[in-house]
Design a protein around this nucleic acid. Sequence first.
DNA 1: GTGGTCTAGACCACA
DNA 2: GTGGTCTAGACCACC
Lengths: 134, 134, 134, 134
Amino acid sequence: MDTGPTIEFRLDRRSGVPAYRQLVDQVRQALRLGILRPGDRLPTVRDVVRQIAINPNTVHRAYRELEQQGLTEGRPGSGTFVKETLELVPDERSALRQDLEAWVRAARKAGLADEGIAALITEAMRSTESEGPS
Amino acid sequence: MDTGPTIEFRLDRRSGVPAYRQLVDQVRQALRLGILRPGDRLPTVRDVVRQIAINPNTVHRAYRELEQQGLTEGRPGSGTFVKETLELVPDERSALRQDLEAWVRAARKAGLADEGIAALITEAMRSTESEGPS
Amino acid sequence: MDTGPTIEFRLDRRSGVPAYRQLVDQVRQALRLGILRPGDRLPTVRDVVRQIAINPNTVHRAYRELEQQGLTEGRPGSGTFVKETLELVPDERSALRQDLEAWVRAARKAGLADEGIAALITEAMRSTESEGPS
Amino acid sequence: MDTGPTIEFRLDRRSGVPAYRQLVDQVRQALRLGILRPGDRLPTVRDVVRQIAINPNTVHRAYRELEQQGLTEGRPGSGTFVKETLELVPDERSALRQDLEAWVRAARKAGLADEGIAALITEAMRSTESEGPS
DNA sequence: GTGGTCTAGACCACA
DNA sequence: GTGGTCTAGACCACC
């Protein structure tokens, strides 16, 4: 049994994206998806080290960055906690999620590997670039 | 009107991904999308330098990497050319592209910024992970 | 002969203030005093290491923090540069400076050591606390 | 009206200075300013905990440090008392205090925030550094 | 036990 | 030579 809503990190070591940055992005994404909310506790540095075989300093650096962004707060002796969140547009959210999931399934059925899917995505992002906020 | 089948590079300097790696990835994506095909010529190093303010050595390195992957071929005196391609499953391709583009448009209309869209995408990739080829 | 307006760091190792934090504060103060201005180059990490016998990582961390505060910008291969400044109220500045210097001189003549002066200062800050901006 | 010669602690949690160290410094400053004098009683650990939301162990540690410096004395069952003091040059003291207070008021009126004032102060300390005791 | 700081040293990307 | 990332490991402050 879980002790509450937390986050499981992953590292893609071949992506070229720095590890600390992957952690930061994953927390930000979890905030945007409502997976993490203010008051939630992030896994301890040592937990993360056990989970994904990474150096404690790297985890620590990611947490420091998040703290500087005002999103989390480290409390010595008790852990690191979410302070602020990054809201996702709530209404259409679940519909969008389901549609996208269906699309990914279709793409996978069509034999596309991750790199191919990523190619389509960045292309779609580019070709619609002027149509929305940042 | 385009001057022909070539590629326009972009750099995201805040992403943490090394510049040379961004170039390589963009060529690979263009190959997968059929934007670049065998025989096409890549922009010269000088062109790229003018386009995106980057050090020539960095561009060289990216082209070297592509050549090592067997995808391109430098012909001294005339440029760098595409040798091999990375094909996308052809049939469903255009349908998938259009569907995805429509989805992105919808997400943008719903007020989602790039980071929010990225969050939904990685979530969808994860939740369907077991269903296709890596 | 100096190559331009730069900054010389100092460390007070007995103060209890973390070294990286002392560096950050000194840059911020130099910005407020107009000693450093946008476009100026900070000493390289290696320079600072030579100057004050500190670990490169610690200097690096201070510079990273400044970059996250939007004040500086690291350009690989060429150095770290001031991007934004923190303006000091300009008019009364020089008068205030001279008055304060005179006061410090008087305090020193009266036999006060640094800790004594610091005591008077924090007391004066407290007793006038409600009268100004943060 | 005050309830007697005691001391009110404050913590600046963002300063990077260890909490126990802030307490020690504040007692030393109070001694230098004559706010605390031999025989005075420091607030109990419990009082401090109530005042500033700190761990009792941390307060204990600060009091232990003060005792080691010979400045205070714990009397089991009755509290912690000031034993020695750190004298300020007595004569000019009040004049200096008033002058400094006036200066701070002027600086605040000029729109300077705390960080700006701190910048001017450390600059003045530096530029007069050679003129007095440590 | 928690997070936080610092040192030491290797290796990479960029000019 | 510049900044940037990561590992390894010590020690401290706080609960």
